[in-house]
């Protein structure tokens, strides 16, 4: 079990631990099977090329899942993910690693719960943000 981070430990501007993902064509096939999204642009290169795409591309929803993992890893076993918002701005192709990153933008207590709002994103190796987003977690406080 990952180490727990506490509400007391984060401040606005705090950079949350990054998450590296290395999507492959095999992962896209596994994701297609697990999610039920069989749109061919994600595994049939000829089909993708015929649709003016540079290659097969990552499912937006898979990138959404990567950012979900970034946030649940950050929240830890005693934290909870409350909201997740992602936008697919730039297409990503398998073989290109992605880095999930985030910065705490706001922390507050509401209804006895400790909320932490983060700006989050996936960036490619050139540092281009392909998938910006926003995540909200609740964290435990130190006793």
């Amino acid at each position: 079990m990952a180490q727990q981070i506490y509400f007391d430990d984060v401040e606005e501007g705090f950079e949350i631990p990054s998450l590296r993902k290395d999507p492959t064509t095999q992962q896209l096939v596994k994701y297609a099977g697990a999610s039920g999204d069989y749109y061919q642009i994600h595994y049939d290169k000829d089909f993708a090329l015929r649709n003016n795409l540079p290659d097969v591309i990552l499912h937006g929803a898979l990138k959404n899942a990567f950012l979900g993992q970034l946030m649940t890893d950050f929240a830890g076993p005693d934290g909870d993910l409350k909201a997740l918002h992602v936008q697919y701005r730039v297409m990503d192709i398998p073989g290109n690693p992605l880095l999930g990153r985030g910065i705490v933008r706001k922390k507050y207590v509401q209804d006895g719960k400790n909320f932490v709002e983060c700006e989050i994103w996936l960036e490619d190796q050139q540092g281009q943000i392909t998938t910006p987003g926003h995540g909200v977690v609740t964290l435990p406080a130190r006793a």
Partner: peptide, 27 residues
């Protein structure tokens, strides 16, 4: 499939020790 190794989503036995007492689904 999404490459998330978190035991809360992968391992029923390990997930027994979480606050939900068992597996939960990823976001």
């Amino acid at each position: 499939a999404i490459g998330d190794q978190n035991p809360a989503f992968n391992n029923e036995q390990a997930a027994r020790n979480t606050k939900y007492g068992g597996l939960t689904a990823p976001p």
